[in-house]
Amino acid sequence: MFLIDCPYCKESRDQNEFSPAGEAFIARPQNPEELSDDEWADYVFYRTNHKGDHWEQWVHTNGCRKFFLVKRSTISHEILEVAAFGEVTSENKS
């Protein structure tokens, strides 16, 4: 049961107020018609399943209902950083 800091509400809340929303920084392809099936499948289904520090998206479902970014260690489940969208991008992420 995680304790997550919502960057919008500025409060630490229990995990059951939140829903996970998958890996972060996955951009929708600009040219879907030109993609092969493999490339499309890669965007829709395939994830890195990274071991270690990992950026992911969460929604504060039973709170402000906003999406935000969480950097979490998938080994210890420690939450290292939370950020609103735009504060951290795939270019400047740590």
């Binding site: 049961m1 995680f2 304790l3 229990d14 489940h77 939450i79």
Partner: peptide, 9 residues
């Protein structure tokens, strides 16, 4: 105390 979950719960 029978269970210890993540983040000291």
């Amino acid at each position: 105390a029978y269970a210890w979950y993540d983040h000291n719960y």
